[in-house]
Design a protein around this nucleic acid. Structure first.
Length: 501
RNA sequence: GGUUCCGUGGCCGAGUGGCUAGGCUGAGCUCUGCAAAAGCUCCUACAGCGGUUCGAAUCCGCUCGGAACCUCCA
């Protein structure tokens, strides 16, 4: 039996607002699309949270045995400074300010984005298409929407006709918005405007003579609108209807609403079965965002140079911190919370290292109670993750498991009291969930041969001192090492381990 | 104003009708030459008011407070 049949996943579908049991379109396969970054700027921690959320989603689905095609785009054209289809293109603006070719800007920030993803151990998607690589397709779908009457041309630009669309379909289905109110709100259109309604949005924008990012089209030189790229790239690689579409909560309206309208308008089919939205990272209760100026850059976090931080934190401690809350809740970012997370993370990894070295032994006298507990814990990992990817609950289970691992280590319980298959599955589950599902790994420690050799020598000396009952010397070695951030721990049989701060 | 959501113990943060979340902090105990680590125990909460129910942090209503979206942001 497949793991995904054994532990069916339920998830909160933003389209219905309900938690639903997930069922893939093609048994055993999942198509997932996530809105990637607009590469005109450095990614901050808020962005990281979203990509982490969907990293977990894809990791867990794969862990359960699904074959996942995960598409995450790079927006490198068409994202204007505001959504009234006015203002400069973000990439073009940055290029102008920096006196660079737009594609230089794109390249630079794409590289930076990838670097950050690697640091946080966020796996790359299966396909990472870019908007500029799909201009032809975007023109094609725009033509199709024109043919179907869901779009109109105006002065070299093409706009989506929301009013017309809403006569046959439901615009606002995702965000719960009322189209009448949407049409009334906002300022009135003046004669200069190309759009018929405020809520109509651009599929294609005419390029001014000075606009450097431009492509020929049936309507003259121009560039694509922001929303259309996602419709094109998702359907091209995943089909006209696919399983999961994800993104940050702030993209729900208008971006995802427009995607639904475009896809439905073009194909007559509903483009996505399950919409998943991750919530915001906040600082003092307020959304972390570039425009509010409260955003943290990953490098400021690692180095601890941000004014709000007392010290630096490793990417894995931060990853752990984010996993302690559910993706659908806001998560507040603070120095204290990070410190607590760092300690918890270390505790979990300590047990991780211990169990990796443990081997099951034939059960001498199986204790049914212990067996039952070990079984229950292993199974609980799957149940909590299958419950809407509840990483917080899963971590709670893993902490319980780590307590049992420490019990085994310290001899509070005996390995021989647990049936071999039960322990093997326990071990496999603990390691699998930490490493593969949650993507936690050891922080890269200085793997300095010289340092390790020196420490081994000091440990040998300290062991000698202890057997000689020269406690003054053994304490000095330990205390002095502690001062420079190295903790010596004495084990049961005189063996010693160390950890570096 | 409209749409959506939240308010949990010293802090962070799960939990959506009955059963211990968990992490961090603090106190104590065990282990230890002494520490550290680890294990155990304790400090035990659901913004306020009313209602439904045998029973509510969990459902409903109101009040207060906060947030996101409706303008660019994951």
């Amino acid at each position: 039996m497949n793991l995904f049949d054994q532990y069916p996943v339920s998830l909160t579908n933003s389209l219905t607002g309900n938690k639903e049991v997930f069922q893939s379109l093609n048994p055993g396969f999942i198509g997932m699309y996530v809105c990637g970054p607009t590469v005109y700027n450095d990614v901050h921690l808020g962005n990281v949270r979203t990509f982490l959320t969907f990293d977990i989603v894809s990791r867990y689905f794969r862990f359960l045995g699904y074959k996942v095609r995960y598409v995450r785009n790079i927006t490198d054209v068409g994202h204007l400074e505001n959504d009234a289809d006015e203002g400069e293109d973000k990439i073009a603006k940055k290029a102008r300010l920096e006196q660079l070719e737009p594609m230089e800007v794109v390249k630079h920030y794409t590289e930076g984005f990838h670097e950050v993803m690697r640091q946080f151990n966020i796996l790359p998607p299966s396909i990472e298409p870019s908007a500029t690589g799909h201009i032809v397709e975007q023109i094609e779908i725009t033509k199709r929407l024109l043919e179907k009457g869901f779009a109109y041309e105006s002065n070299g630009s093409v706009y989506f006709n929301v009013r017309k669309y809403n006569q046959e379909h439901h615009y606002g289905i995702l965000s719960g918005r009322n189209i009448e109110e949407l049409m009334e709100s906002g300022r009135d259109l003046d004669n200069q405007d190309e759009k018929r309604e405020r809520i109509d949005f651009a599929l294609w924008k005419k390029a001014s003579p000075f606009h450097i990012m431009r492509w020929p089209s049936p309507w003259g030189d121009g560039f694509p609108g922001w929303h259309i790229e996602c419709t094109v790239m998702s359907t091209k690689y995943l089909g006209e209807t696919f399983d999961i579409h994800g993104g940050g909560m702030d993209l729900k309206f208008p971006h995802h609403e427009c995607e639904i309208a475009q896809g439905t308008g073009a194909t007559g089919k509903r483009p996505v079965n399950y919409w998943l939205h991750s919530n915001m990272l906040t600082v003092n209760g307020q959304k972390m965002s570039k425009s509010l100026g409260n955003s943290f850059l990953p490098r400021e976090l690692f180095s601890g140079t941000h004014p709000l931080l007392e010290k630096g934190y490793g990417p894995m401690a931060v990853r752990f911190f984010m996993l302690q809350s559910h993706y659908s809740s806001t998560l507040d970012f603070s120095n204290e919370a990070l410190q607590a997370a760092e300690k918890g993370y270390k505790k979990l990894m300590n047990a991780f290292n211990l169990i990796k070295k443990m081997e099951s032994v034939p059960a001498g006298k199986p204790m049914s109670e212990l067996n039952a507990e070990f079984k229950r814990l292993s199974e609980a990992c799957y149940l909590t993750m299958s419950d809407d990817f509840n990483t917080a609950k899963t971590l709670a289970v893993l902490f319980e498991m780590s307590a049992r691992i420490n019990d085994l280590k310290s001899g509070n319980i005996n390995l021989a009291e647990i049936d071999q298959p039960v322990f093997d599955s326990f071990k496999q589950t603990y390691i699998g969930f930490i490493e593969q599902v949650l993507g936690l790994q050891e922080e890269k420690e200085e793997n300095d041969e010289v340092l390790r050799g020196t420490l081994d020598l000091l440990i040998t000396l300290r062991k000698k001192a202890r057997t000689d009952k020269n406690f003054a010397l053994s304490d000095k070695i330990r205390d002095d090492l502690k001062k420079i951030g190295i903790q010596i721990n004495d084990g049961k049989d005189g063996e010693m381990t160390y950890s570096i701060e």
